[in-house]
Design a protein around this nucleic acid. Structure first.
Lengths: 150, 150
DNA sequence: CGGCATCCGATCGGATACTG
DNA sequence: CAGTATCCGATCGGATGCCG
């Protein structure tokens, strides 16, 4: 049988991450979770994804420890999906993808959504990435760095 | 006809990035490019991917402006694939994925590869992510930030 | 509303053979 | 070595209907 190649046993952390996330849908679900979505219907409306696909992805993300299924906070009979610490740790990935998209796929001044948390409505805060020794980064530097959020 | 949903016209930068990268293979190709791979065979051996798939992905990445096809530097008749500035800008994405994988898919002390650039063999440099106003990041903070590399 | 089951066309991707 | 071409099973994923 010809199975799809897996990367969960690769010796590369990037490959293992890729394998654990699963597919793009999952990443967009995580994005929506950071953006405040918690309910099945919220994800579904936001993503425009088929319900069976969403269902399968949510299940996989819960199984992978990225999301956690908890009782609805409003007392209804349904479940809500919230990010686990492991899921929250994907924040830099989402931010990095967002940055790349903003830099390369938008005309200057073209508006785009999801710049702030839709729930808290907090303004954008600027972060800087700099080396620990204070030297600025060479944009052409392709060395593999280790990024930590202190 | 039922076509796969595209995100290139989404108003979300994350979705546009996801759409532009295409699939996980493409991301791993970019990872290898950061790691020093340039030749078709290098990518093929490193990834273990079928040649037709690799061929298609390389073509898509070149078409998308992430890679550039240049004459081989050693004078041979073949092509090499190097990162464009747009491709190099994916560096934070790769690093973020690597970090997540290191934190969640490796036993403490378990070795993993690709921690340094295989060509330059430079040592790991530590980066810190901090807010521009100097305050440390709250790990529970789900606000959407903007990350810049000055 | 939140989900599961089923169908089925579209796409993915591994294997292999072939070319220069 | 660097691809291209073709085959074909496996998987993806949109649409739809059903149910509590």
């Amino acid at each position: 049988m010809v199975t799809r190649k897996r990367f969960d046993d690769s010796d590369c952390p990037v490959a293992r991450s890729v394998d654990a996330i699963g597919d793009w849908w999952s990443l967009l679900i995580v994005r929506d979770a950071f953006d405040g979505s918690r309910r099945f219907g919220e994800f579904q409306r936001s993503l425009g994804v088929a319900k069976n696909i969403l269902s399968a992805r949510l299940r996989a993300l819960v199984a992978g420890g990225v999301l956690e299924s908890v009782p609805a906070s409003d007392g209804s009979a349904y479940r809500e999906y919230v990010l686990t610490p492991k899921g929250k740790a994907l924040f830099p990935v989402i931010v990095a993808l967002r940055q790349w998209g903003e830099q390369h796929f938008y005309a200057p001044g073209e508006p785009h959504s999801r710049l702030v948390d839709s729930r808290k409505e907090q303004p954008l805060r600027m972060l800087e990435v700099r080396s620990a020794d204070g030297r600025p980064l060479d944009p052409d530097d392709t060395t593999v760095h280790k990024v930590t959020t202190p």
